[in-house]
Design a binder for these strands. Sequence first.
RNA 1: UGUCCUAUAGCGUAAUGGUAGCGCAGCAGAUUCUGGAUCUGUUAGUCUAGGUUCGAGCCCUGGUAGGACAACCA
Length: 555
Amino acid sequence: MEKSLNFIEQIVEDDLAAGVNDGRIQTRFPPEPNGYLHIGHAKAVCIDFGIAERYNGTCNLRFDDTNPVKEDVEYVDSIMEDIKWLGYKWNNVYYASDYFQQLWDLAVRFINEGKAYVDEQSSEIIAQQKGTPTVAGTESPYRNRSVQENLDLFMKMSAGEIPDGKMVLRAKIDMASPNMHFRDPILYRVITTHPHHRTGYTWKVYPMYDFAHGQSDYFEGVTHSICTLEFVVHRPLYDWFIDQFKETEYRPKQIEFNRLNITYTVMSKRKMLQLVQEGLVSGWDDPRMPTLCGLRRRGYSPESIHNFIDKIGYTKVEGIIDLGLLEHAVREELNKTSTRVSAVINPVKLIITNYPEGKTEMMEAVNNPEDENSGTHTIAFTRELWMEREDFMEEAPKKFFRMTPGQEVRLKSAYIVKCTGCKKDEDGNITEVYAEYDPLTKSGMPDANRKVKGTLHWLSAAHSLPAEVRLYDRLFSVENPSADERDFRELINPGSLEVKTNCYVEEYLKDAQPLDRFQFQRIGYFNVDSDSTAEKLVFNRTVSLKDSWAKEQNK
RNA sequence: UGUCCUAUAGCGUAAUGGUAGCGCAGCAGAUUCUGGAUCUGUUAGUCUAGGUUCGAGCCCUGGUAGGACAACCA
């Protein structure tokens, strides 16, 4: 069945059908370069670029760089990298700063037309005069200066003769408007003390968002300006500005969708910056972060992000997505694509007492049972093995289908073995587990088809590589940190990172490179961290496998 | 003198005036050399009161609830 259109696609198709803009479709992705892109931005990237792709239009990348105080090239670079990683190509890269001259000219035009004035009150006074949502504002005493005086003052502002914060250019609209954004919004402010990342100290005045965004859309020929719901109240002003100077029937149309929220995380650049600056995470690319670079380092593939975005949809309803859905999206994709390997995270020795000492057999391991073209690789089997400590219980409940005295289990890709006992130290800790193998049950042999309840993964002690494994979990311990009255930093999950240093992986992973993704059989999906070296392999857990045994135990 | 947006199972999302579906989560079972994957079954929903209509989740009105807007941020 054809997937139904979301409301944005519906609007675009309606416009196409009506012949709006002669069938031309143009969108833009307009990030402010003041932070790293996160999964919420990915949702926006996918609709902006996706609409252009689907309807044979163009999508440009435009940096909304109108506030030099917060912006930096570091962010420009990372944003471009992340968009490319998601698999999109922009038509052009633009910057709002490309339009500073045009916008300034427009501001002068507004002054000449009596639609803008220079206010020299403090920001506090201006805020007071703005009124409140239920109380009308009052007019500035500077509101009715002459055009010439306004022009002179704006020239002084622009020449750097006015200190920061002393004067602003405001639109003259309606201080009593029920829409707060019409109460003489600020158009330009003076910033002389911060260099702009592209224009340096050339400009002394910078346009505000409302005077830059819609105008930039117009200058570029954007037809559908897609953004998030918090800009709904800006739309009348967006339209009003364009009405003041548009020269033809063309106009960009702003459409707003619900921003992405996910349980157990935060989706605010401000909070992410705080986490980074206060060292609560290791950086913007900490694998616990919802940033795209964080998810990438965690092991998420671009396909898994797309898979997730496809599932959540675009509407105008504000909600919160279950983190489980994101995890499902990545599992679904990695299940189809990742090579299965063996790794033991919490090792204990397993001795096959009737297996000859010194003997080594190379067993054939299927790379991916979900992909018949994925082939096989070999894994060494010997008398002394590593197994997971959790896979042995001296006294086990009935439903424990693993290693326990007297019970048979299958060693994946090798033999069926029967547990015979274990050895403990004086504190009662299990130091070795013993089992006997059945030589006729090697994988592929007829007897290997015997029904055995459990299958365990294992590693030859003499043939395994030491590794560090970082087990990541949700960053916050409450579902919705943003809705909690406590400071979000107090809500960080203390178990969000568990480092396991005493792990082993099979030799097949000897040459694994950073970002390579694998399934550690029976455990989860893991990828190689950027900290990994040939001497010391480091893996990150992307997500665990679904674990119905754990669920059973929690009952 | 407030304006605007929104309301469909626990969560997300369809149904474009004509049988309320789907995904995730949950539950039960089958199957499996990963307690994975896969397959089957299953629990559970139109905020409320009116109106229009042969017929309303959808259109209209009033409630109710949630949210956005009062940065020299975007």
